[in-house]
């Protein structure tokens, strides 16, 4: 059981601590996609962290839309700490989605645009 090697994990006490800025910064700094993983729906240790994170993801998806960055690059999943297998599956799924989208336009466009110049 393993997850794809190109995934980088940022550990947080609760997925609710991840704000829009964290997602944006990750993308801005070279991540091709961001996947938030929080506890199961209704099972937040802190009562509502995962619920808030889900709404926040929607918000950031809209921001990405304004930037013409594919919304599919951002996803949120609810996986409990005991479900390592599910985590790996999700990690693979997310990697596949992002891979099929290709590198984030941030990189490709920057390169092609600078070539045009």
């Amino acid at each position: 059981m393993q997850y794809p090697s190109n995934i980088r994990i940022v550990k947080v006490p609760c997925i609710g601590t991840i704000g829009a800025i964290h997602i944006l910064k990750a993308l801005e700094n070279g991540a091709d996609g961001v996947c938030l993983v929080g506890c199961s729906e209704g099972k937040c240790e802190y009562s509502s962290g995962n619920y808030r994170a889900r709404k926040r993801v929607q918000y950031v998806k809209n921001l990405l839309g304004k930037l013409s960055i594919e919304k599919e690059r951002l996803e949120i999943y609810n996986i409990s700490a005991g479900e390592a297998r599910k985590f790996c599956e999700v990690a693979r799924e997310v990697t596949e989605t992002v891979r099929s989208l290709g590198p984030i336009p941030l990189k490709t466009k920057a390169i092609s645009n600078s070539k045009e110049e």
Binding site: V12, P13, C14, T17, I18, G19, H22, Y46, R52
Partner: peptide
């Protein structure tokens, strides 16, 4: 949990051992 820290519109809240900047 840090939820207040991430929502604070003026970024006045932090968690001692796990602050926003660290993430």
């Amino acid at each position: 949990c840090g939820i207040c820290a991430v929502e604070c519109p003026v970024k006045a809240i932090s968690l001692e051992h796990f602050n926003n900047d660290l993430i």
